[in-house]
Design a binder for these strands. Structure first.
Lengths: 217, 217
DNA sequence: CTCAATAAGAGACAGCGGGTTTCTTAAATT
DNA sequence: AATTTAAGAAACCCGCTGTCTCTTATTGAG
């Protein structure tokens, strides 16, 4: 996070005049905190600048507008996912979905919606934002646990098409967008009532494999 | 739509000074057209007023802000759905989803996102908007075709839980929100790859649940 | 260690939209 | 015809965007 020595911790008065990477990190933190505090609808360039202990001009020197700034912040806040192998696809998926749910809980609900609205008339930004979601680490993580299931012999290689794979995450994202939050029991519902039945109905092999790891609850 | 006689057709110069219902209808049309033309992000009270051939004050006398106005317009633009009985659940669902897809295609993609963002700090409006989606005519229509399937003996009465029923529409809405559009072949994919397999796998799950009930909690 | 190049931060600015208020005048009411 | 109601025009303040200028701290080349 740091790059030089003289630094104010995220939200703070500028101890001394910062530059380059140190300044950018402070701005990213300020933007993130501001977002969490007031929501996307109320975030302003001035608010971020003040919180970062700098001025608007400094922001406008780097980004042409708010969504462009947040697109950068977003990528800088990326986190790796590592879902431990639970031994079966269903529990792996519960873990992954729950990881996403917890992560989602820590960001303002209107952020995605705000970005969509803000980038509506800027096709380049809109596409970048969509790419961010499409190539989210979640997709990679899902591929990983599906591959594990295939290696295990739990499902057939082609059993899960791309729409089937992204469906659980699409539903979670949908809830976050529309309802502003994801209920904790939404994860088990998606897995038990929708994903697992879908898999079972899809082909005989997955049906039998899932029987072996039946849940009780 | 009309209530009095003297009326300007939707987008128009005020022939004479309108009042009450006639005026409100003109405003609703103007708001709708403006939305379709510039998208939610660029809609303004002034823009709507001008298009309706009236002034801002007239709007503010009726609604406190933009989302409140659109919430009213939304309900005034409601349409009934009537999906003819195709004889089986799958085709009924394809019809219903496609109806929704076509209807969705006629409204700006950032409208839902815009409403979410705009109502973020106004809990009452946010809740009203959510209710609008929850109690959408689509839910009722889905219940209707599911009931038909039950009556037909195609599925068991409890086979489809609420999350299972709304899943196809949640996915469609998700696509509209994130990708700004719904690809035509998204409907068959949702039905064939996700919904139908889920339904098939659901019966197996019920069997299994019954059999396991002896040694499970 | 000194000096020139670079860029941070303060602040002013025009423009615009939100939301409020005042006033004139048209239409409905009696 | 007289009175009440509300439409529409316009001015207003305020806050934010995006641009610009100016001063001054920091960097790094010599």
């Amino acid at each position: 996070m740091a790059d030089t020595d003289n630094e104010a911790t995220s939200t703070g008065v500028p101890a001394s005049r910062r530059r380059g990477a140190a300044l950018e990190a402070a701005i990213a933190d300020a933007a993130w905190d501001e977002l969490a505090e007031v929501g996307y609808a109320e975030v302003t360039m001035l608010g971020i600048a003040k919180r970062a202990g700098t001025s608007k001009a400094v922001l406008y020197r780097r980004w042409r507008n708010l969504p462009e700034l947040y697109l950068d912040v977003l990528t800088s806040k990326r986190v790796d996912i590592d879902i431990p192998d639970t031994g079966n696809l269903r529990d792996d998926l519960v873990e992954l979905l729950d990881w996403l749910r917890r992560r989602i809980a820590g960001m303002p609900a209107d952020f995605i919606a705000g970005m969509i609205t803000a980038t509506h008339r800027r096709p380049d930004l809109a596409e970048k934002f969509r790419d961010f979601i499409r190539q989210s680490q979640v997709v990679t993580a899902m591929d990983a646990i599906v591959n594990r299931a295939v290696a295990r012999g739990e499902i057939k290689p082609g059993a899960l098409t791309a729409p089937m794979r992204s469906m659980p995450f699409d539903l979670l994202r949908h809830d976050l967008l529309i309802y502003g939050t994801v209920a904790p029991d939404r994860v088990p519902v998606i897995v038990e009532e929708i994903f697992v039945p879908m898999l079972r109905g899809r082909d005989a092999l997955s049906y039998r494999a899932l029987m072996l790891s039946s849940h009780c609850s």
